[in-house]
Each structure stands twice: as structure tokens, then as C-alpha cells.
Design a protein around this nucleic acid. Sequence first.
DNA 1: TATTGTTATACTCTATAACTATA
DNA 2: TATAGTTATAGAGTATAACAATA
Lengths: 140, 140
Amino acid sequence: MALGDLSQSLGYRIRRAQLWVFRDVSQRLAPFDISPAQFSVLSVIDANPGVNQLAVAQVLSIERAGLGRMVDHLERRGLATRAESSINRRYYLLYLTRKGAELLGRLKPMIAESETSLAKKMGSRAYKQFQRTLSIFLEG
Amino acid sequence: MALGDLSQSLGYRIRRAQLWVFRDVSQRLAPFDISPAQFSVLSVIDANPGVNQLAVAQVLSIERAGLGRMVDHLERRGLATRAESSINRRYYLLYLTRKGAELLGRLKPMIAESETSLAKKMGSRAYKQFQRTLSIFLEG
DNA sequence: TATTGTTATACTCTATAACTATA
DNA sequence: TATAGTTATAGAGTATAACAATA
């Protein structure tokens, strides 16, 4: 069985690598009922307490409408809160609750394990070079 | 604005790289009303005339149910056909129609352009090393 | 006028299970 | 019993536009 043109496509290989990572991360986070996307939002709020929704959507390069629903979900689970801004009343200031911060603390080792398994699969030398090269995709 | 834990995650960078590639490919294929996933199926059928659906799903690492619907769609558009197997009547033998083969011929240069833009963004040296390293994700 | 967030809609993907027909 | 394919369903992700409130 041949992949045809796909076998020469780096874009397709990146897609397959991403699927591998996504499945690995999903399995490790499943016991906590957290998706990779939810982890990413918790991480950004944790790193930027009081951030507003649009800024989170922009740094993650996702749509604000989808992020709003994600925050609804995190709020319903008691992991994050929306506070009103006294400076700009269009903003919601996002914070992790204590419960959210505690959960994130337990998720971090799972993500670290996933990174380790990825480094093992790729080889640590390639892992480091990839880190450098792929940083260009974090903007835009 | 900080990404928090994500900034140290290669898995997340791979995700962002994949999003970049996906958007680039989608834009280039949009004039033909073809998605990246549809292109991948056309490529595999082209490279393996008479292949059955399960084999296509397996080589692309996707679900057979989803692939069935994709083939429905390609068949309705006159790009692929299902033929009955005289050897094993559970099989559908998949082929590109002439129209499908002609379309694929016009899509290939678009994908090649996307690969070029990716190589330019990453640097050709990294592009080549990535090709080698990421081949491990093509199985399983 | 432009920005932040919400709502609604629709489409795609993904995952699962149950079903058929064939082997 | 196992395999190839279909059908149905539900959930998640994505994209869009229209809208309200605020700047």
C-alpha cells in the first residue's frame, strides 16, 4: 500500500505527527476529563491572570466565539472564573479558580510525560532541533 | 502575552505548524473545492488502483466509517468509482475516474507550491531533516 | 466607528456502536 | 467467527455572521 504523492509531502508528515501527539496527550489527560484544547486555555490563563478572552484566542490562534464556549465550559466545571473589569467594561478578566490551579498542577506532569515520550520517539537531538525550528509557527 | 507551559511543548508547536500547513493547503485547494482530506484520499486511490476502502482508511490512519462517507462524496462528484470485486464480494475496488485523475493532476502543482512555501518558511536544511525524522509517524 | 463578547448556524471531523453481507 | 462496508449518532472543532454593550 502506497501513499502516493503524500509520501513526499512534509505537510502530510506534520499532520501525522500532530495526530500522534494529539492521541498521546488525549489519553494522558482523559482520566481528568480534559481535552488538549482545554489544557491549552488553562495554561494561558494560568500564565496571564486577568487576561481577557480575545487575547487568549489570539495567542492560541483560535476563534473568539469558540473560546467563549470553552470558557463557559471551564466556568461550569468551576475551573475558571470571569471577573468584570472596572477599567474597561467590555472585558472579562479570566482567572483560574483554586480548583482549576490545582487541576492544572496535576495535568502538568502528564504533559511532561507526553513530551518525554515524543522526545524518545524522535530522538532527543531531533527533538531539540524541532523546538528551535518550529518556534516560527508560534506567531501568527 | 505568554503561552505558559505550552511554550515548552513541542507537541503544541507541532500542532501550530500543522494548523499553518492546513490553512495554506486549504487555500490553495479551495478553487477546486477540495479539502486536504479529500486530496489525501484521491492520492491514495491514484497510487493504488483497485484498493479497497479499509486499506485506504488504514494507510491514512482514519476511521473506515468516515472514509466511506468521503468516498460517497467523491463518487457523487464523479471523481472516483466503486467497482465490485469478483474475488471477494465484500470488497469495493476503488478507482479514480478520468475526471478524478485529471483533477488530481491539476491539484499536484498546488500541493507542490505549498511544500515550497513550507520549505522556504522553515529553511531547506530543516525541511530535509524533518522529512527524515517525521517518516516514523507514517506507520501506525 | 471600532472593539469585546455572545449567540446562532452550519459544516467538518472524530468516535462509537449496531447492523448487513460475506468469508 | 471474523472481515468489509454501511448507517446512525453524538461530540468536538471550525468558520461565519449578526448582534449588544462599550469604547
